[in-house]
Amino acid sequence: MRVLLVDDEVEYVATLAERLSFRGVEARWASNAKEALAYINQEPFDVAVLDVKMPKMGGIELKRRIEEIAPGMRFIYLTGHGSEDDYKKGITDGISYLIKPVDIDQLMKVINQAAAGRIG
């Protein structure tokens, strides 16, 4: 399974990618939307885990952009402290909305569900 993690907190996203790799996930990470879109243009991913609040382009807008390039991808939002509006938007979109700090086993479960097409 190939997962793209996008978060402007580099130490967070890099560590999370490494921990997911120990669990059999092929994880790449990007620290902004531009980098993320460049990866998606180059290689396929099953799931994207997106931070909601990022400089210039947040996860909600990034999801829309990714869907134009890779229509089959599944999504998970992961944020430090999203607003009520962001949360509702995630629910409306049928996307899992996880709050940091997240338990790695819970994240793995949600990634597996997303990859299987049950959510996201």
Binding site: E9, T15, G80, K100, P101
Partner: peptide
Amino acid sequence: KNSLAIINEN
């Protein structure tokens, strides 16, 4: 929350 998340992951 971001600091706690990084500490948590490490």
